[in-house]
Amino acid sequence: MNPLGARVTALIAEDEAPQRRALHEQLQQAWPELEAIALCEDGVSALESVQAQPPMVAFLDIRMPGVSGLDVARAVAEQGGLVVFTTAYDDYAVRAFEAGAVDYLLKPVQPARLEQAVARLRERLEQRRSGAGGPDLEALIEGLESRLRPRGERLVRWITASAGDSVRMIGIDEVLFFQAQEKYVRVVTADAEGVIRTPLKELLAGLDPDAFWQVHRGTVVRVQAIDRVTRNELGRHTLSLKNHAEHLPVSGAFLHRFRGM
């Protein structure tokens, strides 16, 4: 019997299929009443799932390609859900999570540790049911993101892009947006553009998340270049830029970035 007296739904986001399946199977053993409503292989699909059906609990890998577990956690927190992060790196995780996160799990996940996390989640859910508050998850996410932000040699500084019959060196400060197109990624500046073969999800790992935002599965935009986001009569959102005439689509999974702008 479920002691919470209600259905408890969960989302699992992990880009490695064997680990995703293993965590799901372990959760079925440790928490039989938990209903996994989404098993996601990347951050974008996790965001889309949160938008469509917000989970009560989310188990999120921090270092997913493209959209990170921190971005997904923000969306979950905005919907009132709880978060457990999974990570293979304990060098930065322990102190940060013990400062106030619901919990974290080191990979490979050990059954005894998972049972402990489940007990804590049950307690937090019961506290919420009785009206008690919880940790400031948004503040925790901000602190974690600052520690995980690419620095030094990890940051992309130049893009070598093909432009017709030539190759152009584009400084990262010139780029307005990146847009995936079949086998290539467009690199667009205020007055020119080129293409690169590096997948967008790999490129994101070297971009400063304070300077570039993903706004669509295939689009990453410089924040300072954004002029406005407009909603049309069909409910679809598009983004306009300050120094470029092109309008870019914004998917619902990323609209949370623009709240309060």
Rank of each mutant, 00 (worst) to 15 (best):
Q51T: 11
A58H: 01
L155G: 06
D136N: 14
D90N: 15
R20Q: 05
Q79F: 07
E123A: 15
H24V: 11
Q29F: 00
P111Y: 06
S68N: 13
L140G: 13
L137K: 05
G133M: 10
L70H: 06
S130E: 13
Q127C: 09
E48I: 04
V102H: 09
G100V: 15
A117E: 09
D91A: 13
L23H: 05
A77Q: 10
A101W: 11
Y92F: 15
S49Q: 00
L27C: 06
L121R: 02
L155I: 12
L155F: 09
V72I: 11
R120D: 14
L121P: 07
R120M: 14
E78L: 13
C40Q: 12
G152K: 12
R120N: 14
V102S: 12
L121G: 03
A38D: 02
R129M: 08
I141E: 03
L47H: 00
F97G: 13
P65G: 11
L60K: 05
G131R: 02
V109A: 03
R63N: 11
E35S: 03
Y92I: 14
G152S: 08
G43F: 10
L105I: 13
A36R: 07
P108M: 08
R128T: 06
E138L: 15
D61N: 11
G133K: 07
D103V: 11
A96R: 05
A96G: 14
R74H: 01
L140I: 14
V67C: 03
R147Q: 14
E48W: 00
